[in-house]
Design a protein around this nucleic acid. Structure first.
Lengths: 199, 199
DNA sequence: TGAGCATTAGAGTGATCGTTCTAGCCGCGA
DNA sequence: TCGCGGCTAGAACGATCACTCTAATGCTCA
């Protein structure tokens, strides 16, 4: 079920990443998804904004799950976030520097114009920060410190995308990941031993 | 001289920050600047891209000088970058969360579409990183470490703008500034005493 | 004053924008 | 077989897009 709807969201996601939100037309989305204008407005009665919100919500959930999968597979809690930076850099190079994240682009374009889109973007990024915070508190870091590191991680990745795509060189993400990891290591080392988990 | 040209660039800068690059029309720029279409194409024969490049170059220089002014006025080398984060947060709140930086927005929108704009954005951000690097090496930090911290600073600020504007809460910039400052303090403390300058 | 040129004025171009609308298709329950 | 509602098809709408073009203006320097 929802196959046409899914195709519309998937096509929009890719187009937004490549051309931005305002830079993508519904005609492009129609052609790329194989859905007609009628279908798009059937599933997204609010038009382009409705569609944008759906893309942001969907991508937000996917990336949160991706973070949890990567961080969960890390050999130790300190390296979980670093692995995400490295993975993002690899993705960027493999896709010829297409934006890996439509949310940051949409947020910057329309944060002052569309409240629904702004809120959806905030919710998505907050959910990532929640995930990083949970990951670090599980390693014994206190909540405030963990959250500050989560915010820095998300900011550094989103900002790193801008820098990496402009330069057409993703290595900055790896270097920023190393810097953030230093802070995470210090925070984990400072945690009371009794609260630490993991190896 | 260049008064009309300047007005066009200033108006475009403000509109790009508020509505994005693709979200701003030449008609809006014409009205906001008081210049006619003819004048815009007289000064920017390449049209919107030409204008965008000029906005990026101009803003890039201004922000580089602003960083140097703020960092130079800091009471010690460690706090220079932190003061920039705090200043950015204050600006964001004073302007009702209008994007302080048109360059990040333009870069994300058109990095895969317009090479001149992509390169101009890269040049601007690289010049900021050069400035941070120079600031830190003057405090004795070795060049590679200083550059990595410069890259993280610019990424964290650009990414922080996305997060702060979506949340309509600029405090994340202050917290990220604190985290980055920890790394800078460690780097300065690790520098050989003979190379340190400042108090 | 008058020639020459940078600049401004603004109507007009075809293309494309997001959106609306009506007609028809399809599969399923009775 | 019929009817109905979810879904699709795609033409059409007015608005607006980036851009072009021809004239006219105003400033400078002789």
């Amino acid at each position: 079920m929802g196959s046409t709807r899914d195709k519309i969201i998937t096509a929009s996601n890719e187009l937004f990443r490549r051309y931005g939100y305002n830079g993508t037309s519904l005609a492009q989305i129609s052609e790329a998804s194989g859905a007609t204008t009628g279908s798009i407005y059937h599933f997204f009665p609010g038009g382009k904004v409705d569609l944008g919100v759906a893309v942001v919500n969907t991508t937000g959930s996917i990336y949160r799950e991706l973070f949890e999968a990567i961080a969960g597979a890390a050999e130790n809690p300190v390296n979980g976030v670093y692995d995400v930076f490295v993975g993002a850099a690899a993705t960027l190079e493999e896709t010829d520097f297409i934006d890996p994240c439509p949310i940051g682009t949409i947020a910057r374009e329309v944060a002052n114009v569309s409240d629904p889109l702004r809120r959806a973007a905030a919710d998505a990024m907050n959910s990532w920060i929640d995930a990083v915070t949970a990951h670090l508190t599980a390693a014994g870091v206190d909540d405030d410190a963990a959250r500050a590191l989560g915010e820095l991680s998300v900011s550094a990745i989103e900002g790193g995308f801008v820098l990496a795509r402009s330069r057409r060189d993703a290595s900055v993400l790896v270097r920023s990941g190393e810097q953030v990891t230093k802070l995470i290591r210090d925070a984990v080392d400072a945690a009371p031993l009794t609260q630490r988990s993991g190896t």
